[in-house]
């Protein structure tokens, strides 16, 4: 278990990332906020010995995905229109708004891989290891996501 200063440092550093990943899975701001809180609480309580910051980050992503799966299975789960949340974000350019809508409009299995690859900068091998999904599957999802994004952004 961390002391408060250590925990606070990690929490501030990673909570927005956790939120983004949760939102890409659940497409619901309230549920993504709940998952973010739960993931941070798990980080505070864990006795796991982390080797590095990267290890903490990877562990948090894994826990976030698992928590999202639990929420997704809940009888009360319901996703919400992405645009309602997008309109609160005040993007600098219209293309940013379009990119957000298109990426978050993808199925969760695609949007999460896209975020981890492009935004968090993970390689296919690293995403495979974090999500515990075969590399080939991740690679296929990324290729399909790119094709979908290309089509959708051209149409937008």
């Amino acid at each position: 278990m961390y002391n408060n200063d250590e925990f606070s440092g990690y929490a501030k550093k990673y909570m927005d990332m956790v939120f983004r990943i949760a939102f890409s899975y659940l497409k619901c701001q309230a549920d993504a906020d709940d998952v973010t809180q739960d993931a941070l609480i798990r980080l505070y309580k864990t006795n796991k010995a982390f080797a590095s910051d990267a290890h903490v980050k990877n562990w948090l992503i894994r826990v976030t995905v698992n928590l999202c799966k639990n929420v997704f299975r809940s009888p009360w789960y319901k996703n919400e229109p992405i645009e309602a949340y997008a309109n609160t974000l005040q993007f600098e350019a219209q293309e940013d708004h379009e990119l957000f809508s298109v990426v978050m409009g993808l199925d969760k299995k695609y949007s999460m891989v896209v975020l981890l690859y492009y935004q968090e900068g993970y390689s296919i091998r690293e995403i495979s290891s974090i999500l515990r999904i075969p590399e080939k599957t991740i690679s296929t999802r990324l290729t399909r996501a790119k094709a979908k994004l290309k089509t959708m952004l051209t149409e937008a």
Binding site: M15, F19, Q37, E92, D96, V103
Partner: peptide
């Protein structure tokens, strides 16, 4: 481009307080 777009997404301000 992804940073400019997706870094706008932030957890609620009261997240840490709740935790």
């Amino acid at each position: 481009l992804f940073d400019r777009t997706f870094l706008k997404m932030r957890a609620s301000e009261d997240t840490l307080q709740e935790v």
